[in-house]
Computed example of a mutant assay.
Amino acid sequence: MPATPTFAETAAEAWPPISGWGARARSAARAARIRLEALKQRRQTEPFVRCLYAHAVFPDTVPTFRAFLKAAKQEGEFVDTPTLRAIIADGRPSDGRFFHLSFDDGFASVYEAGGPVMEDERVPYIMFVATDLIDADPDTLAAYFAHMPAYQARVRTLDWDQAKAAATGIGEIGCHTRTHARLSKIGHDPARLTDEIAGAKAIIEGHIGQRCDSFAWPYGTASDIDEHGRAAIADAGFTSNFSAVRGAVRPGVTDVMDIPRHQLEFHWPLHELMVWARGFREA
């Protein structure tokens, strides 16, 4: 009988420790820069619209996650994706302070450990899922994580019951393709693009019983998508598309089909999370 696959159930199990003198030196320098920025920053009072995203909320990071949400709520209001789209489309400078929170890849910990916290704090969120990873068999997950060197162990993904439950609460389910495909690599294959984008949208809608309007392209940099991928996303009927490129969201200027986001992860220190939430390197 094959062995039952093991999964990371804590942040320490999921992400590898920093090793090697070069990596440790770079990490120390980065930490020093962020600590200096944290000392310089002040609580925000000027209007802003800022999109934040992460991947997981493991049980060992729940205290930091809750503390972050409470701290961020002192500086701005968390809004859902339809509200974000309306703010962008309004075209007038925002007179409020708004955060939008999303999670990529559809890891179960977001719903299991993070979901109750977000329900308690009344923070709306969206999970961008790669549909072939939901309810996936061990071989599929093993193949996926073999190409994701940022992780030292496999991480459990949602099942469809959890995805539907999230969507019926204060969560949303967005699309992250079927297989976590790099769209710039398949732009020459219209059938594959359609399957990865429109096909994934149909799968999500079939399982959760709601429209899926939002997309985030895997890997998230400008080089990971091309004009063919962008056209396929629009043709599939998505009304918002998110990158992983840091930047400011500016009503009337930001393209709703190319929304920037700031990455943060909740095993990072709280002061570091707040540095990114306040728009460090946003310009």
Rank of each mutant, 00 (worst) to 15 (best):
T4S: 13
P5G: 13
E9H: 14
A12T: 10
W21M: 15
A23D: 00
A23M: 09
R26E: 06
L36T: 08
Q41P: 02
V49I: 15
C51S: 11
F58A: 12
F58C: 08
T61N: 10
T64W: 07
R66M: 07
E75H: 07
G76L: 08
D80W: 12
L84D: 06
A86S: 15
I87H: 08
P93Q: 14
D95R: 15
H100C: 15
L101W: 05
D105V: 01
F107S: 02
A108H: 04
A113I: 03
R122H: 11
Y125M: 14
T131F: 04
T131Q: 02
A136C: 13
A136G: 02
D137Q: 12
H147G: 00
M148H: 02
V155L: 06
T157W: 00
D161K: 10
K164I: 07
A165R: 13
H176G: 03
T177C: 07
R178H: 06
D189E: 06
D189P: 00
D189C: 01
A191H: 07
R192L: 14
L193C: 11
A198F: 05
A200K: 01
A200S: 15
A200V: 04
A202Q: 08
H207E: 06
G209E: 09
D213H: 14
S214W: 07
F215R: 10
W217H: 13
P218Q: 09
P218Y: 05
Y219P: 01
A222I: 02
S223D: 13
D224V: 00
V249H: 03
P260F: 11
H262E: 07
R281F: 08
A283G: 11
